[in-house]
Design a protein around this nucleic acid. Structure first.
Lengths: 213, 213
DNA sequence: TAAACAATGTTATTATTTTAACAATTATAC
DNA sequence: GTATAATTGTTAAAATAATAACATTGTTTA
């Protein structure tokens, strides 16, 4: 199967999440319109996404929840688990690790890095924390492909360069700094300020539209 | 001017941010290709966005940084400041408020809400914190249009309903729960798990592609 | 002052994403 | 057992977004 559309990947992640809670307390099968309504999407979009991943339901019965979860897992997780590290254990770093530790996921955060000496060589939010200086050393002895950046903007690009040099293949950037990475490294930006300003804009637009009716 | 494309709005927010740091330590003018390279976009996209907001640079000189910042401000901020509240002051809530308090922004977080009695009626991260029970009371006496949700998934929909009923017009949802809101309320989801799984997928794809060469 | 150059502004094209349309199929009711 | 209704799977169309193409214009330089 060739690479799936980005938006489909996003939705697959959401499908799985709601399917897992659905599975826990309800029926064995689910209709496209049910899954759609749980996520406020259209049934067509759900069916099309499921078509793209090569899974088939049965007409009139819908999709087997269990099989669909497994199929999405095949796509998103692959076979082996993925190791990640997090750099920066302020409030945001702790929030992220708490979040992930509680979820059933194939992605494990295996180490945290900090400059603040009071946070180094301790277990924070269930994760062993090291000084950022030992980044290369730890990465060398463990199979880590993804890094989560929740540190100060000032250090972001420096640490990124070191991560890339150490062989990291994907970066989830929570800082507001636009990072430069080589072509073969995936970068996903997660920008609170932009989300907020975007929301504010559309709120204002909506209010404006309503007033102009 | 009619409503701008969603993607343009996102980029405008990013333009402004890099322009502000650019302004602080560099020249009066900026070329489209400079602005583009700061954000790893194409010059065409930058020029097209700027065209859409109705601003013009001068050929051969580029865009006036100051004027462009102001013009983006007109679009994103409008005239008046926007008030927001945040619900849930765990690590994530604190991270978000710290983030916003330090930025120059037209969006003010004016109150926080918590259920944990040890966090109520105090100043946390510079923001007055109230018990969630007094949500309606506080909202009634202040002009708040946006709410940020960084609370437990379990309470998310309940609180959302109360916020909507109290007249909130936009919700920034940091929980992983898909929320139901009426048509006239804007909703922006900010989903860490999905971002992470998406990144993991594309990392795997890239590794797969490289191996198959 | 005129030619060359380098930048903007805008229209046209292409790519991606969503939505619509509808045929195929299966369970159910009569 | 046949008709009916409801659902899936897939192709086609529409909407949105990104990229390319290029005309225009201001600046520099000879």
């Amino acid at each position: 199967m060739s690479t799936l559309p980005e938006k489909t990947i996003e939705r697959l992640s959401m499908y799985r999440r709601v399917l897992q809670t659905y599975q826990d307390n309800q029926s064995e099968f689910i209709y496209s319109h049910e899954l759609a309504s749980l996520l406020h999407l259209t049934p067509v979009q759900v069916r099309r996404d499921i078509m793209l991943i090569g899974y088939s339901g049965t007409q009139r019965k819908g999709y087997s929840v269990k099989e669909l979860i497994n199929k999405i897992g095949d796509i998103l997780d692959g076979n082996e688990r993925i190791n990640a590290v997090i750099i920066g254990m302020g409030h945001l770093g702790k929030a992220i690790t708490n979040y992930f530790n509680t979820k059933r996921s194939k992605i494990d955060i295996v180490a945290a890095f900090e400059n603040d000496s009071t946070k180094v060589d301790r277990i924070i939010s269930g994760i062993k924390s090291y000084h950022t200086d030992s980044l290369e050393m730890i990465l060398e002895e463990s199979n880590v492909t993804i890094a989560i950046l929740s540190l100060s903007p000032r250090e972001a690009q420096d640490v990124t360069d070191r991560l890339v040099f150490a062989g990291i293949k994907g970066i989830l950037n929570f800082t507001s700094v636009p990072l430069t990475v080589p072509e073969d490294v995936s970068l996903e930006n997660y920008d609170m300020v932009t989300s907020m300003e975007k929301l504010a804009y559309f709120v204002k637009e909506k209010i404006r539209d309503e007033n102009s009716l």
